[in-house]
Computed example of a mutant assay.
Amino acid sequence: MTIYLDHNATTPVDKRVADEIMHHFLEEYGNAGSRTHEHGQNAARVVNQARATIAATLDARDDEVIFTSGATEADNIALLGLGPEGQRTGRRHIVSTAIEHKAVLEPLQRLADSGFEVELIRLGVSGRVAAEDVLAAVRADTLLVSVMAANNETGVIQPLEQISEGLGGHDAYLHVDAAQTYGKKNEPLRDHRVDLISLSAHKVFGPKGVGALIARRRGYRRPPLTPLTVGGGQERGLRPGTLPVPLIAGFALAAELADKEHPERLAACQAYRDEVLAGLAPLSPLVHGDQDYCLPHVLNISLPGLDSEAVMVAWRGLIEVSNGSACTSASYEPSHVLAAMDVPEEQILGALRLSWSHLTPPADWADAVARVRALV
């Protein structure tokens, strides 16, 4: 049996979540926008309950949850949606980091092309941006600060608490791409100074094709987001289109289960991490990123003198890993994350990301080591 170790790309759907989704596909299939009959009204109730469930996991209000197709769309709505506000007020400075996901970096580049000044903070081999560097870059005309909760390639957790605290007296909006930490490390996301949070269901054992943007109010004022698409007015006008009720119901159940089962899942992931490190120890892997601030289910390594593609081929049929973000794997570009960490090029070319979950069965690490040694 091949062991899947690419959970940062996507997690399997929990069987309980899959059952919930199929129930709504086959039995309660109404359109949540159809208020004139029972099927539509039931669908609307399902969506409202899902909104309340997800909001509760982040200490948000129900009406602050905007359903999207995933974190990428949520990132785009949050970042590009603030553009008109920056143009209107003259606040055209944005602070972010060089290790953000492309779903953040590319919208930021589009804003830069339209006249915004985007400042990307670099960082060292720790893979963890210094909160003081982020805060030092903030100016009077800063519209937005965008920092991911944890990096998708290294698993390194970013200092959100210090950044949000440092922004306490500033008007800049704080956006967090939390695709990799939602359902796994929610506490920093419950801070009400975090204005905008991007979520994706398929990273937390839910279905692909659904996510959410949390758009927190400041007092009574919502973040001044301009919709990117129009037509229908759903999701408070920010994301029009028929709501995918089965996927939303599945997302809510996945979020609820992650919250309820968090201690057990965390312990299982930590134990598996110990097994991975012990199993690969004979190969003397170089581990990237500060392991004191790393998610327990992620490991980014380089095997000295070996190319990542060769290792993945050697492990075929045994374990499945990646050599970067799933969203950019087709391009075969060197990792911009590791480059921003000043990792040497030969190590970048040999870098592998292993990511697992509480559901992952044991791997045959002795065989994995033997296959790699056969390459040398």
Score class of each variant (00 low, 15 high):
Leu5Ala: 08
Ala9His: 03
Thr10Asp: 07
Val13Ile: 15
Asp14Arg: 09
Ala18Trp: 04
Met22Thr: 13
Glu28Arg: 14
Gly30Asp: 00
Gly30Ser: 03
Gly30Trp: 00
Ser34Leu: 07
Glu38Arg: 13
His39Leu: 14
Gly40Cys: 05
Thr53Ala: 13
Ile54Asn: 00
Thr57Met: 08
Asp62Ser: 13
Phe67Glu: 08
Thr68Gly: 06
Thr68His: 09
Ala74Lys: 04
Asp75His: 09
Ala78Tyr: 11
Gly81Ser: 08
Glu85Gln: 14
Gly86Val: 07
Gly86Gln: 07
Gly86Cys: 10
Gly86Trp: 08
Arg88Cys: 00
Thr89Phe: 04
Arg92Thr: 15
His101Ser: 14
Val104Asn: 13
Leu105Tyr: 01
Pro107His: 03
Leu108Thr: 07
Asp113Ala: 15
Gly115His: 01
Phe116Val: 08
Arg122Trp: 06
Gly124Pro: 02
Gly127Cys: 09
Ala130Thr: 02
Ala130His: 11
Asp141Tyr: 05
Leu144Ile: 01
Ala150Gln: 02
Asn151Ser: 12
Glu153Val: 15
Thr154Gln: 04
Ile157Asp: 01
Gln158Lys: 09
Pro159Gly: 09
Ala172Glu: 01
Tyr173Gln: 02
Tyr173Lys: 13
Lys184Asp: 00
Lys184Met: 03
Lys184Cys: 00
Leu189Glu: 00
Leu189Tyr: 04
Asp191Met: 10
Leu196Cys: 05
Ser198Gln: 06
Ser200Met: 02
Lys203Gln: 14
Val204Trp: 07
Phe205Cys: 12
Gly206Leu: 05
Arg216Thr: 03
Arg218Met: 02
Gly219Pro: 10
Gly219Ala: 09
Leu225Met: 07
Thr229His: 12
Gly231Thr: 09
Glu235Leu: 08
Arg236His: 13
Thr242Pro: 05
Thr242Arg: 15
Pro246Tyr: 02
Ala249Cys: 05
Gly250Met: 05
Phe251Arg: 02
Ala252Met: 00
Ala255Ser: 15
Lys260Trp: 08
Glu264Pro: 00
Cys269Tyr: 01
Gln270Val: 03
Val276Gly: 02
Ala281Cys: 03
Ala281Asn: 03
Pro282Trp: 04
Pro285Leu: 05
Pro285Phe: 04
Val287Gln: 12
Gly289Glu: 11
Asp290Glu: 15
Pro296Met: 03
Ser302Glu: 05
Val311Glu: 03
Ala314His: 12
Trp315Val: 08
Leu318Ile: 06
Ile319Tyr: 07
Ser322Met: 14
Gly324Met: 11
Ala330His: 10
Tyr332Cys: 08
Val337Ile: 15
Leu338Met: 07
Leu338Tyr: 07
Ala339Asn: 12
Ala340Arg: 01
Met341Ser: 08
Asp342Ile: 00
Val343Phe: 07
Pro344Asp: 11
Glu345Trp: 03
Glu345Thr: 11
Ala351Cys: 09
Trp356Ile: 03
Ser357Pro: 01
Thr360His: 07
Pro361Ile: 02
Ala363Glu: 05
Asp364Ala: 11
Ala366Trp: 00
Ala374Pro: 02
Val376Phe: 06
